[in-house]
Design a protein around this nucleic acid. Structure first.
Lengths: 229, 229
DNA sequence: ATAGTTAGTAGTGAATAAATACTAACAATT
DNA sequence: AATTGTTAGTATTTATTCACTACTAACTAT
C-alpha cells in the first residue's frame, strides 16, 4: 500500500504520534427487509459486556488493508450468508465515548434485501441474530445498546426520504413483482397508505410488464412487472 | 474515556491486533462561499510530496480524544479563522490506497460561510490557501490531488440537492439580506436562473421583512429580509 | 348464477410549478 | 422638470402534479 517509503518517513516526522494516535474503525450494518407487512431490521442480542443482553447492530472492524465496502460485504456475508445485495453508506459516528471499551469510529451502512433472499445462517456466531420490527425497536430504545438506537432512527429517516425520489424500494422485492406488492413496500416504509392510481402513474416509467400473472387467488390476478433496464 | 479497564482488557483479547491494526482518521473540509457571482471553494496549494503543487482540500487528523465535530471546528478555525459557521457531514472515503503515504480514512464535511464572514488568516500555515471557482476546479480535475476531485463533485451535488428542500442557502448570506441577493445565491448553486415570482412565493414563509431598504443604487431599492425564527 | 375480494382504470377538483407581463421606484441624464 | 435605464416587486395565466372518488375487470368459493 505504501508506495514510497521515504515519503512515508518524511510524513511521519511531522505526524505527531502522541496527539494523533490511530483509531479503531468499524462498519455498523443496518440490514432491512419486509416481513409480514412490517419493516424489519437485523439485530443481534449481545451476550457479552458491555450492554450484555441488549440489542445492537451487527458490525465488523475495518482491516488496515481493507476498504470500507469490503468490510461491509464481509460483514453482510458473516451475518446473513447472502451476497451481492444493495447497500449504501449512511453516516459516520464519531463521539469519543460512544463505545465504553475504546475509541471506535463507526461508519454505518444500510443494506436492503428481499425476504426471499434472506436465509439466516447459523454459523459459528457468538450472538443471536434476530429480525425485529423497526417500529417496535424504536418504541423500546432503552433495550438498544451503544448509540445504535440513534443510528436506527437515522437510517429509517433516510430510507423514508430516499424511497420517494429513488428506486430503492425495488431492492426489497424479487426481480419480478406485482404492483400491489410493490405498493405495500412503499406504504410500509412511508408509514401511510397511497392512492393506487397515483402510485401506478408515478412508477409507470420505471417498470415494464411481463406476460405472467398471479394465480390461485380468489380474486382478479395481478400482473408481474420488472424494473426497466 | 475508558470506563472499565477490565472490560477493555477482556475485549482486547479477542480483538485481533494483527488483522485490525488501527487506522488514521482525518476530516476533509469543503468550505464553500459565494464571491463575484460564483460558487467558490477553499482549497490549498500543496507544497510537499505527494501531490506537490497540486490543489487539495484542507484537512486535519482526528485526535483519539476528539470527536469528529471537534476536529472539524479545529480545522475550520485553523484554515479560515472563523468560528460558529454551519457545517454538515458529507461522506466517508475509505479506499485503501487513497493516500499513498499510509492508510487514511477521511470523513468529509461541507461548511458554508458568507463571504463577509470569511477573513483569511495568514497564520503560520505551510500551504497557500485559495478561494477557487468550483466550476473551474471541476474542469481541471487533473490539478487536484488524492481523491479530492471526486469529493468536490460529491459535495457540489449534495449542495445542489439540499438547496432545493432545506434552508441551507441562508448560510451563504448575512443575517439581513435582500431577495434579489438570496435569489442569486440559489441560481449560482443550482446553475440555472429562477423565476422571480415563483422564487418569492416559495421562500415567503421562511422569511420576514425588516423596515430597511438598500439605497444609493440607480434603481428601485430592495427591502432587507431575515430568516424567520 | 352470484357473492366476495382484489386488480386495475377513468376522471375531477385542488394545489403547486412554469412562464409571461405587467407596475414601482430609484439615479443619472437631458 | 421630464425622460431614460435599470432593477424591485406583483398579477395573472397556463401547465403539471397531487388528492381523492368512482367505477370496471377478473378471479374463486359457494
Amino acid at each position: 500500500m505504501v508506495k514510497n517509503k521515504s515519503e512515508e518517513e518524511l510524513f511521519l516526522e511531522k505526524y505527531d504520534k502522541e496527539k494523533y494516535e490511530k483509531i479503531s474503525v468499524a462498519v455498523d450494518l443496518l440490514v432491512f427487509t419486509v416481513e409480514n407487512d412490517e419493516l424489519k431490521l437485523l439485530v443481534i442480542k449481545r451476550n457479552e459486556m458491555p450492554y450484555k443482553d441488549y440489542l445492537a447492530l451487527p458490525g465488523v472492524f475495518v482491516g488496515v488493508d481493507e476498504s470500507l465496502e469490503e468490510a461491509v460485504k464481509r460483514g453482510i456475508r458473516e451475518e446473513t450468508g447472502v451476497e451481492n445485495i444493495y447497500f449504501e453508506q449512511l453516516y459516520t459516528w464519531g463521539e469519543v465515548d460512544r463505545d465504553p471499551r475504546m475509541r471506535i469510529i463507526s461508519v454505518s451502512y444500510m443494506a436492503l434485501v428481499p425476504l426471499e433472499s434472506l436465509r439466516m445462517r447459523v454459523g459459528m456466531r457468538v450472538s443471536e441474530v434476530l429480525l425485529m420490527s423497526v417500529d417496535e425497536l424504536l418504541e423500546q430504545k432503552d433495550k438498544i445498546g451503544f448509540d445504535h438506537g440513534k443510528i436506527i432512527e437515522y437510517a429509517r429517516e433516510r430510507l423514508r426520504n430516499k424511497v420517494e425520489y429513488s428506486k430503492i424500494a425495488f431492492e426489497l422485492v424479487p426481480k419480478e413483482f406485482t404492483l400491489p406488492q410493490l405498493q405495500r413496500i412503499y406504504e410500509i416504509i412511508l408509514g401511510h397508505p397511497l392512492y393506487k392510481a397515483n402510485f401506478r402513474k408515478k412508477i409507470s416509467e420505471m417498470i415494464c410488464q411481463t406476460d405472467r400473472y398471479t394465480s390461485g387467488n380468489a380474486h382478479r390476478p395481478s400482473q408481474y412487472y420488472r424494473l426497466k433496464e
